[in-house]
Amino acid sequence: MIGRISRDAWLVACRDLRIEARSRVVLDQVVPFSVLVLVLFGFALDADNRTLRTFAPGLFWVAVLLSALLAVQRSATLDRSDGTDTALRMSGLSPISLFLGRASAVYVQLVALQVVLVGGLLILYGVDVEDPLLLVVAGLVAGVAVAAAGTLYGALASGLGVRETLLPILLLPVLAPVLIGATRAFDDALGAAAVDGWAWTGLLSLAALILTVVGASTHSALVED
């Protein structure tokens, strides 16, 4: 059972990533957008390096969430234009596999996005990484939570005429606790504030686990339409 779910999820993830590699929407549009957000924050804060360094963790995660919205919308609409979603439902793939596969593909894209944005923080904001391990672990764990919630709400909003406006309203409040936890963990990793980043990473792990379990267990109610 678990083996089959994993195998099917792997197939779905590889398929989504293959489509992305060919279409390059994330690479050509989402990644430049995220860097643009970082640049705009720099303009808004009047290019004050000290302020930018202090708020870099929060600005980083706001940029990630805004970019994730685009990635999730893209993922959710991949199959709707040509009716592939119906074919997927008829193929016998379990909704759990579909969810895990799609979430995994979004996760890989988010991790790539984070790598680019961390580079942006180092170059544009001039931050110093004091705890690289915490930075990596917190980024990876928070990415799971964002990908799980994003995939669930992307499926929920797909097929609706107003999904572009509805998805942020639904998704961003759910991700607010993730934003808080991830920002605190990055505060510690980047030396921006004296907090226990590992404790926040533990909370992020719990959020990631809950969102993944809830997403996988309720996804069937959304894809059977």
């Binding site: 669930l152 109610a221 339409d225």
Partner: peptide, 16 residues
């Protein structure tokens, strides 16, 4: 369909 979608949103929200 709306009922099912809304139910999922509610179940995630009450986790808060």
């Amino acid at each position: 369909r709306q009922a099912r979608r809304a139910a999922v949103v509610a179940l995630v929200a009450v986790l808060d």
